[in-house]
Design a binder for these strands. Structure first.
Lengths: 237, 237
DNA sequence: CAGTGTGAATTCCTTCACAGCC
DNA sequence: GGCTGTGAAGGAATTCACACTG
């Protein structure tokens, strides 16, 4: 099963596993698929399928060795190294990614902040000074920055993206609410921080509008695939 | 096709459509599935399928009327009203949701900020003052807050969630990296703001580690379902 | 014509259930 | 006994292709 490409869904979950394993690892040296499943809110079988991609990394009867697992998964996701990141526009969204956040612990180091706004240029956030966007051309290669975060207003997103790409960035996360287009060879992800609110609203609002009691009585309507209906294991109230 | 429950995937996309339509609406009164698809990075057929749920809301030959479409989709997602939201802990993540962000424009109004940290209590963010978490019991019902955002450290997440739920909240967004368990009738979504970075890292790091040139030359490896490989004249090989 | 609505085909993902190993 | 690895079954979500309509 090995030499195949991993499914997109699996890749997404690998990120979740890293997250969960980091904390599970503090408690025990080994986890079973059941335990990991509970921590992630997924079906145990799904976890075994995902991990089976490595071909027998688990031990029957006991489970998976946390450290080893973390290690291979991180390697697969290429997060067993440091990625340097540039943020364009220190907006609220942009600033939420700056050092001091958990982002750094996961191997992503924001090493530059750019802005097209004269007022912002020169401001400092911790050790970082805001530079004019036009300096990306020089700074990006010098600091070995490979990933760019677009946190501009939508109308400036494309320009910011182009500028970063020209400077050498080849992975982009766009937080602005527009679709930016990129040259081949550049990988782009569009992130909408507020989408989850929509999902919650839909779940809560089911049935007649503002009949709060109804919604309250209703069980979770969405279950992430694999999530047990409720009353979690680990379910202390 | 109407009386069926909508698929989870469709619901997620409805959120995206709202987003896209808000800006497309400024340019034209009508959109085709092709145009909307381009704006969202999706396959046109998929959009027609999704919208067909409403049963003939489009006009053959011309497309969908933007305003009407927005209106029904918003209704479906229950975002044709205001939802009041409480945030626990004004961490960087928590603060990114406070008024002034685009969240308010989408119908979600943060009306209270709570903290268990004595130092934070009393701080002001715009018009909002940080209250001790224990006051949730009184404030949540008074302000009609229905949704809670957990932006605490992981070890306090469950407690914060329980407190809010006891106060009357029945929808939760958890930004802390733990799985919180909830009573039936309470809808919970777990959000990990940094997951997209993992996906980018994986895409960029494909193949031999740190052979940047290789990655750079490679085309986007992940395509969101429906996204054309790139520069996509659709169809025809 | 341009563009929707939709069955049918396809691809992708998840769950089941059980054999096999520790 | 506990738990992994995995084929086979089942279910979703997406794409295709085309009839049909304004």
């Amino acid at each position: 099963m090995n030499r195949t490409t991993i499914s997109k869904a699996t890749i997404r979950r690998f990120g979740v596993y890293i997250q969960a394993l980091e904390s599970l690892g503090k408690e025990s040296r080994v986890v079973s698929s059941d335990r990991l499943a509970a921590a992630c809110g997924l079906h145990p079988g799904l976890i075994r399928k995902d991990l089976a991609w490595y071909g027998g990394i688990g031990r029957r009867g006991s489970g998976y060795e946390v450290h080893a697992l973390l290690s291979v998964i991180k390697h697969t996701l290429s997060v067993d190294r440091i990625w340097r990141v540039a943020v364009v526009e220190p907006t609220v969204t942009g600033r939420a990614l700056l050092p001091g956040t958990a982002l750094a612990q996961r191997g992503f180091e924001v090493s530059a902040v750019f802005s097209s706004d004269c007022d912002s240029v020169g401001e400092r956030y911790g050790a970082l000074e805001v530079h004019p966007l036009r300096m990306a051309q020089e700074i990006v290669p010098r600091l070995g920055i490979e990933i760019g975060v677009i946190a501009t207003a939508p109308e400036h997103a494309q320009y910011a993206a182009d500028t970063l790409v020209r400077a050498g960035v080849y992975g982009l996360l766009c937080y602005a609410p527009v679709r930016i287009s990129s040259q081949p060879g550049v990988f782009v992800i569009h992130v909408d921080v507020f989408q989850p609110f929509f999902t919650v609203a839909h779940a809560l609002g089911l049935g007649d509008p503002d009949s709060r009691a109804v919604a309250r009585r209703r069980n979770n309507v969405f279950r992430e695939p694999g999530v047990q209906p409720d009353s979690g294991p680990r379910g202390r109230v």
